[in-house]
């Protein structure tokens, strides 16, 4: 038996709304406390002192990422710019997941790698690495499946 595209619409819509809810949940603490999020990003040291036209990319990321999540969530729900937003969300989630995994490699050497816990700056406080990796990869799959497909 094969599922016809129309039979997938309802589960895709439900999943899209669920993913949007998660993204908004992640965005809220970052929007409320931009400096707190900047500190969290700084810990990763990925962007370092990089700047463009006098704007530090680390600061720009702290300002921009929460809005990527908010507008990405809106795009998933409304369908406006959905595929373009989903592309950014997938890229961002993959990049951030890689950064989290890389950061965990450098901390708490006495704890098994996948059980290391820290505040990843994701908006959810302290997380255990394996849980964060599973959650993020599930989000990547969900966004790609529901958002990148041509309707």
């Amino acid at each position: 038996m094969t599922l016809r595209p129309t039979s997938l619409r309802a589960p895709q819509t439900v999943l899209r709304i669920a993913v949007a809810g998660v993204l908004l949940y992640y965005a809220w603490p970052k929007l409320a406390d931009p400096f707190g999020f900047l500190k969290a990003i700084h810990v990763y040291g990925i962007l370092g002192d990089a700047a463009l036209f006098g704007v530090r990319l680390e600061n720009l990321a702290a300002v921009g990422i929460p809005w990527l999540e908010v507008l990405g969530a809106l795009a998933l729900v409304t369908g406006v710019l959905r595929r373009g937003a989903s592309l950014w969300l997938v890229l961002f989630l993959l990049l951030f997941t890689g950064a989290v995994a890389w950061h965990a490699a450098g901390i708490q050497p006495e704890v098994p790698y996948l059980r290391r816990s820290f505040d990843c700056g994701c908006g959810t406080g302290v997380v255990v690495l394996w849980e964060k990796l599973v959650t993020n990869l599930a989000l990547v799959v969900a966004v790609a499946w529901t958002g990148l497909r041509r309707s």
Binding site: V63, G64, P66, W67, L68, V70, L71, A75, L81, R82, R83, G84, A85, L87, W88, L148
Partner: peptide, 18 residues
């Protein structure tokens, strides 16, 4: 089409964030 949408979305996000 996908890249064009991605560029428009990035621009909108940047303006909203700033």
């Amino acid at each position: 089409h996908l890249l064009r949408q991605a560029l428009v979305f990035a621009a909108v996000t940047l303006v909203a964030a700033l």
